[in-house]
Design a protein around this nucleic acid. Structure first.
Lengths: 342, 342
DNA sequence: AATCGCTATGTTACCGCTAACAACTCCGGC
DNA sequence: GCCGGAGTTGTTAGCGGTAACATAGCGATT
């Protein structure tokens, strides 16, 4: 174990510089591998730094260099399965850029989003990736004036501040409706969350109803929930909606988790899936692979969204282009075993 | 929209000070609500700051004040369900302390843990919450010399650097074994992950075998996996182990997710649960509530662990005590419907 | 009226590091 | 022998705030 000169005070460049007999500047150069330093000096410095257990102070470094290797990532929730996957895409892409993601969670609250954004911008990150296109006026203003790359992710139905990467949830809902109608279902129910700030779920529903309307149909019934175990809620809601409107022949769930609950419920109850009743969810979560039947769903391109957003922030996506990019990904319908095949 | 003097340059205290006709120091005082400032001045400053869209620079502030309102949180994974819940406990508790969590993910790799820790410490956080008690020598040294509160969470079977909050996974395994033996099961199989760095899963298994040994039993068979959809893997592994060792009468899963997969498989196959075959998992995840039967499990006190860890870092847990606290929580066995009742 | 004690505000000196530039060494080429 | 340039190291001046202390204003006290 190295001998620590003064256990109370934290080490600075000066300590390393004194321990190795060179100037602070040279130590700084060695530790950042920047500029020319002779091999012997480098070794001596690295040795001293290691021996002392020196950890650089990025606060001072960032202030002096006006450069911060942080990227703010603002998402509504961590318990949703969806966002961790976006994060994975971001992290992996950022890994070889020297940039580091810093995550903030808003719980679908615009006020918290504003607070989190303010806090993040006060650390002067080199970019921000934020879920959704809907933000408070103050948040919009902060994003617009931040002077750094901003990427709004998940959704492209709207006008981004700067860049955007995502899918059209309106279209996702619409296409699902078309597929369901094409499969011959007519009495269709919707089950989803009650969250007023989940704009993407709202847009999917709007697109879905639009798709039904094209075929002259409307939703036969709907059921909403908030909070609790999604799988359990899926069961309960399915039981409730079927009790209320027994002649439904299709249930569209706003996410796979409640869809999976509904699927389990129907299988137990002995309902003939997909003939008597069809089911579909949204997201394409991995979890579904382990279910007794494969729930029809639509992939949300989560990993890909994260990857591209990170590339844009890092300036690696189409070199030269600085901002204002809009990347629309197209989700694919996975019919699974819960929609009739024609 | 406010008129921005110079769109290129980012705003500083000086801009606000000039716009409001007071010194930078007074602006600083207003924005931090520290010290006495007259109401008229305060209003004038706040107005100017709002009008300009000023966002304070915490980098400069932190350097000058030697105070950083960040708490580093280092966890192995986000896709595990378990850690997001710990995070929730941490966030909620930190919320009214002015402290802010910053999350780093290691993917169960000691090397990445070391890198993430180094990166975090270089931002001089006011505390670190880190999962597990096993770290590389370098990581241990960094933690020991950081001069800030360190809380190692999840596990208490070992020696913490500073404080620790968690459960004894050894004992959790042992108690589960005792319960299973008491229920009359004798041919017991284990199914778990192959990750060599998941020390907690390893300790649970060790405790479990210890518990079996007390009754003169040993594991009849075992099956490991890595990667992929846990639910699906649970199915596959269950099929595999039962094919190989058909006379097993109990399956102990290292986590609820694979346990749930196993449960679904067994129900489909028509195996008599819990009489012909008993099942148990670990964690007590909310997901289980939606399953056809309630899987036996043991709660890992995730939320509580997060809450207490955050309190310790914030200095709110037993005021006066600075560090070196060890808090052991005791998980409770939830027998569910998959262990025979006597 | 001089003194005291507040409150409200300003001034100065850093925090720990890095950009920019200066300086010095050593080498070969003319 | 002098010069130019490359390679290496040092010096200086901030980056944008805040702690600590200084100062000004003003009513109350004696």
């Amino acid at each position: 174990m190295a001998r620590i000169p003064d256990p109370k005070r934290t080490l600075t460049l000066r300590d390393v510089s004194e321990a190795s007999g060179v100037s602070e500047m040279t130590v700084s150069r060695v530790l950042r591998s920047r500029g020319d330093v002779s091999d012997t000096t480098r070794e001596r410095v690295l040795d001293a730094a290691r021996r002392l257990g020196y950890v650089p102070n990025k606060i001072a470094g960032a202030l002096a260099s006006q450069r911060v290797n942080l990227v703010g990532v603002i998402i509504p929730s961590l318990s949703n399965m969806v966002f961790p996957e976006v994060l994975t895409g971001i992290s992996e892409t950022l890994d070889d850029t020297g940039l580091q993601p810093v995550v903030g969670v808003t719980n679908y609250s615009p006020e918290r989003e504003e607070a989190v954004l303010y806090e993040m911008l006060s650390w002067r990150p080199s970019g921000v990736i934020i879920a959704g296109l809907e933000h408070s006026d103050a948040s919009q203003a902060m994003l617009a004036n931040a002077g750094i790359p901003i990427v709004e992710v998940m959704d492209i139905d709207g006008t981004p501040v700067d860049s955007a990467v995502g899918i059209s949830h309106r279209r996702a809902g619409l296409e699902m409706a078309e597929a369901i109608v094409a499969a011959g279902y007519r009495r269709i129910g919707f089950l989803g969350t009650m969250m007023p700030h989940d704009h993407r779920a709202r847009k999917r529903l709007a697109g879905f109803e639009e798709g039904l309307a094209k075929a002259g149909l409307t939703l036969a019934d709907r059921e909403f929930y908030s909070g609790g175990s999604a799988l359990l809620k899926g069961r309960e809601m399915t039981a409730a909606i079927l009790a209320r409107t027994p002649d439904l022949d299709f249930l569209y769930y706003s996410n796979d988790m409640i869809g999976a609950g509904g699927l389990l419920y129907c299988l137990e109850t002995g309902i003939d899936i997909p003939n008597r009743l069809g089911l579909a969810g949204f997201n394409g979560v991995e979890l579904l692979d382990g279910l007794p039947r494969r729930l029809a769903t639509m992939d949300a391109c989560r990993y890909e969204i994260g990857r591209i957003a990170a590339e844009i922030v890092a300036g690696k996506h189409r070199d030269g282009i600085i901002g204002g990019e809009i990347v629309e990904l197209t989700p694919t319908l996975e019919p699974g075993d819960t929609i009739r095949r024609n």
